[in-house]
Amino acid sequence: MVISIPSYLILDFSAANPDLATLDLTDTAVFSDYVFDKLRQANVLVGVGGYNEHRVIYRRSAHFQQTAEPREIHLGIDLWADAGTPVYAPLDGVVHSFQDNNNFGDYGPTIILEHQYAGKPLYSLYGHLSRLSLEGLYEGKPVKAGETIAEIGPYPENGNWPPHLHFQLMTDMLGLTGDFPGVCSLRDRDRYLAICPDPNLFLGIEGL
């Protein structure tokens, strides 16, 4: 398991959620209070969801509006939990790359691991980490399944989001290092989903 999930609530950040129209999502404190109030009301520790979800929350950041067609399709699964929550490697592998993607609404500190799965390369991305998570890393550093590799970061250092982990799988890095799109446009949806399989393959969360 990438993080410990003793209890969870599926969170919807698409236009189907009427709450989102009432919130100032550009105010990270307001956004964070909304997320963690939902978790407290449900008496759970983790919020989950988002793979292939057409989301409205990216309108809060110019980072996703830089092309002719805005990016609104989420390519990973989000695990909303307290800052400082440890993050574990799902498989043996090595550090492929890492960097601090320090823009409002971006990943913030990011780690990408490289694995072998079913005889082929598979990459896993961990976004919205603490800056401390990047210390001591180097490309090629070996990691073992179940090893603590990082922790969920606080805002604003995590890209200015309510604390959560963005977990994503890729079969092709497209030549990128330290970063990979976690959100795509409607036009590019099929192309990216073809190389970004459902991360629930390793999470096994019922209902997703």
Rank of each mutant, 00 (worst) to 15 (best):
V2G: 01
P6L: 12
P6G: 11
P6H: 11
S7Q: 08
L11Q: 02
D12F: 03
A16T: 15
P18Y: 11
A21C: 09
T22L: 15
L25D: 06
T28G: 10
F31C: 11
F31M: 10
V35D: 03
D37T: 15
D37K: 13
K38F: 00
R40Y: 04
A42C: 05
N43F: 03
V44A: 01
V46Q: 01
G50N: 09
V56H: 02
V56N: 02
I57G: 04
I57N: 02
Y58P: 05
S61G: 09
Q66A: 14
A68N: 14
P70H: 07
L75R: 03
G84H: 07
A89M: 10
V95W: 01
Q99T: 13
N101S: 11
N102G: 08
F104N: 14
D106G: 09
Y107F: 15
G108M: 03
G108L: 06
I112P: 01
E114C: 06
H115W: 10
H115A: 11
Y117C: 02
Y117G: 01
P121I: 06
L125P: 06
H128E: 07
H128P: 03
L129E: 02
R131H: 14
G136I: 13
Y138C: 08
K144M: 13
A145S: 14
A145V: 09
G146P: 04
T148G: 08
I149A: 09
Y155A: 13
G159D: 06
H164P: 09
F167M: 06
L169I: 04
T171R: 13
D172V: 11
M173W: 04
M173P: 03
T177S: 15
T177Q: 15
F180Y: 15
V183H: 02
C184S: 13
D190R: 12
C196N: 11
G204D: 09
